[in-house]
Amino acid sequence: MVEVARTHRVGSRRVSALVLLGFCTISVLLAQRGTVRDFLDEEDNPAPMPADAQEPGEYTFARLRYTSKRNGYWGRGGGAWSTDWPKADRQFVQGVRRLTRVNARSVEQVVELDSEEFMQYPWIYATEVGRWDFTEKQAARLREYFLKGGFMMTDDFHGTFEWSVFYEGLQKVFPDRPVVDIEDKDQIFHVLYDLKERFQVGGIQMFFTGRVSENDGYDAKWRAVLDDKGRVMIAICHNMDLGDAWEWADHPRYPENFASLAYRVGVNFIIYSMTH
């Protein structure tokens, strides 16, 4: 009689522990969901149109619109190209205006490879390039763009799989040029700021995952495709999310050092492209 009662008591405690564990887990999860919600709420309130939006400038933040390799919505605009747009662009440009003498237009310009205006923007930004794809014609146009003096900054793609997709697209543009690691002494890291110490800049997902890195992209890779004179044509920022840093630099929870590095890298890339 006593043995049955003991068994019954042991079974009840296990159930209680499980329930308690479950409760705690859900609580933690709910707490996380609340933090991500903070950022998602902000995404619903994009950056306002600046008062001088109509004023042209010498430099324009040109964002490349491309066809995503996989279907699916990510961010506003209906494609991976639009990640962080337009807040990242406008907030970054504010920094460019404040930190340099570059006469930057306050609003961004979305450009497409098939458009005539594409060649009017010698500096372009392409994000989530782990999803990009080109037709042969678009690839040829991009190749011509670089060889004539155009510059591209790529950002926000992580890990082995996304690299393979990026590289596949890149091969269409430059099948015969290698991707190299940018050396520390390269002028692109010293043209305005000395960026000797660089680190991985994470996106807001880190508040959800608890990790700065995404997928298996554990280490920040600073890579490039060079022209015949050793100048950077494509600056490849792999395993980092500089766009998020620009976008959330004004958020109190976003790490200041991440935002600072992201701004300095972006500014260096602009100055470099306007001097080389």
Partner: peptide, 16 residues
């Protein structure tokens, strides 16, 4: 040159 400009870049490249 008083500020970074595209003309500056492309002039340098033109005569390098």
């Amino acid at each position: 040159e008083g500020e970074p400009r595209w003309e500056f870049k492309f002039v340098r490249r033109a005569i390098e």
